[in-house]
């Protein structure tokens, strides 16, 4: 399986390339991609340097243009598609049918991957994007169980890429508007969930409150480590009890599923985290490179090393990892 790693900056891209990525995905420096954070991403000059660096080492570069354009900004999305074509990237990763149609008509030779934001979870949707936009690869949303992924892979008309490690989005990507409900900004429109500019950390005596646009997302006791107020990972009251009503702070880790994913015919595994530091990217990439190589060398006896799992847990939200929806019991 191809190892697809994130880069929010040139140093992160170099880290991914140097530590064993087969492909690196990046975004331009605006709201055309779903990790639109201050100080992150690539302008054209930086993208050109990135391409050169990756190409010299035989690594592919993918460009995410995967938010949903509003009419007033349409030309930003088409310029991004043109820029990606001009740079000669390996593929764009897109979700909006308008953007996919533009790329199909204007740059038919450039590969089109379907972003996870398009929320294609079944053969019918995959067939649609393949037939209409000649999409050759799709990134699957993190809502499918392992057996559902295996069943899809058996008949999929396109290559499949699945999430391997990183922040766990628990909703069908592209179909969650909870962030804009609380803040007016969502992954679909501005490329960010629970955006930092709406976050407030407030000390209340010994405890710490975290808020998103004024709404209390969580309240931490002094002995607890206060986490970022991602709205689906807060503690709320349901039926009179205070609990993580949607999900706990945890990260996805599918290292243990490498044999099953490989045998199912999955083409690529994706590491989440263009917003992360180069050091993070380097460490996660290296662990996954070693794991994939170890599987390739001895598929029959593969089992994840304790040191890999320890290293990944250390990089995880709340130091916890989960198989997420791949494991039926999580659902």
């Amino acid at each position: 399986m191809e190892l697809v790693c994130p880069a929010g900056s040139l140093p992160a891209l170099k880290a991914a390339v140097d530590h064993g990525a087969d492909a690196v995905y990046i975004g331009f420096r605006d709201d055309t991609n779903a990790r639109h954070f201050a100080g992150l991403n690539f302008n054209e000059a930086k993208a050109r340097k990135a391409l050169q660096y990756a190409r010299d080492k035989g690594v592919k570069v993918l460009v995410a243009i995967n938010t949903f354009p509003h009419p007033a900004g349409w030309s930003r999305w088409t310029s991004s598609v043109d820029a990606a074509a001009d740079l000669g990237v390996h593929a764009i990763i897109a979700a909006d049918p308008g953007v996919l149609g533009y790329a199909r008509d204007k740059h038919p030779e450039m590969r089109r991957h379907l972003s996870v934001q398009a929320s294609a979870t079944n053969l019918g949707a995959l067939a649609f994007y393949h037939e209409r936009f000649d999409v050759t690869r799709a990134v699957l949303p993190r809502v499918l169980s392992l057996s559902q992924v295996q069943a899809l892979a058996e008949k999929s008309p396109v290559e499949l890429e699945v999430f391997a490690f990183g922040s766990l989005c628990i909703m069908a990507e592209g179909r969650c508007w909870l962030s804009s409900y609380l803040t007016s900004e969502s992954p679909n429109t501005v490329g960010a969930c629970s955006p930092a500019r709406y976050v407030r950390w407030e000390e209340q005596g010994a405890s710490m409150d975290t808020r998103l646009n004024g709404v209390l997302i969580d309240r931490f006791d002094p002995e607890e480590r206060a986490g970022y107020p991602t709205l689906c990972k807060g503690r709320y009251q349901v039926k009179g009890e205070t609990l993580h009503a949607l999900e706990e702070p945890t990260s996805l880790n599918t290292l243990g599923l490498i044999p099953e994913l490989e045998r199912a015919g999955i083409t690529a595994v994706k590491i989440e985290g263009r917003q992360r530091s180069p050091a993070y990217t380097a460490e996660v990439t290296q662990v996954w490179r070693e794991a994939l190589d170890a599987y390739k060398a001895n598929p029959e006896t593969f089992s994840p090393q304790a040191s890999w799992q320890k290293s990944l847990a250390g990089l995880s939200e709340g130091c916890q990892t989960t198989l997420g929806a791949y494991h039926r019991a999580w659902q």
Partner: peptide
Amino acid sequence: MPLAVSARCFTARAHDLPKD
């Protein structure tokens, strides 16, 4: 307003029941 869909059943989770 329906604002999100997930693989997880949150009503079952609130009752400490697995989706299956």
